[in-house]
Amino acid sequence: MSTEGNGFKSGSNLEKILTAGHFAFTGELGPPRGNAVEEVAEKAKHLKGMVDAVNITDNQTAMVRMASWAASLLIMQQGLEPNFQMVCRDRNRLAMQADILGATALGIKNMLCLSGDHQKFGDHPNAKGVFDIDSIQLIGMVKKMRDEGKFLGGAELDGSPKMFIGAAANPFADPFEWRVHRLAKKISAGVDFIQTQCIYNMDKFRKWVQQANDMGLTEKVYILAGVTPMKSVGMAKYMKAKVPGMDVPDEVIKRLQGAEKGKVAAEGIKMACEQIEEFKELKGVHGVHLMAIEWEHKVPEIAEQAKVLPRPEV
């Protein structure tokens, strides 16, 4: 019962794009710090027709935001496909399974299983972090619900929650030697696709993908390379110094510093597009996940410049 008659795991647009062998292109949208539908609609309109699916973040950086399933539904009403993010920080296994049932019942077909940033970073730093299960265990739980029709506890569930199961990978956090093995664990837990941390250190990323190729992992999972264009030198310096697990080489900062006044952002976009061009040719990479943080209106320009348009109809 793992698949519908059509052979797909969930039949999401993203799954169809990837299984058809197209180079996938996904975007991201952070729900509002309030319940303003218009804010979601405004961000979503820039992404329409530009990406195959849109990640809807789940209380990103541990700041309270509109529920990711709710914002997912809002963008579906606009004709976009969500990739529903779920972190282990905020829900126990009961709430997670309930939300998965609810999400699939309402037509959500992709989800991304994450541990979640520690609550210390957010606006409720002394909240109790749940972490009842971790991201790898979450992948296994969704797969069990989908493929065996069973809850984590073992009881049969009514219906079959079809999800195309995603997870994250950070090739840059240490120990580097272990990162490819952690990818392998996610694959054996049942993940269908991976979106990586923002890539700036291309050498290290190439090495990681090579390891994954050598271990045969890239034949078992679709890998979407994470790209975030730098808006400014300040952003690059901040990400290098302050964001855990982020690897920003000095060359990246130097190149931005070398840009003409007023053209740093354009240089950042150019750099991102050069990366995307390389990823299109890189064995083991099946697409790009563009995280244009609070820069959704730039996505059409980036997609155009990266030559990923028009998006394939599948």
Partner: peptide, 20 residues
């Protein structure tokens, strides 16, 4: 582990230290 992970490390490892 600040997240009590059983299948770590998460992506926040920073030069051998915790993201927190």
């Amino acid at each position: 582990c600040a997240k009590g992970l059983y299948n770590g490390p998460c992506g926040g490892t920073n030069n051998g230290n915790c993201e927190i």
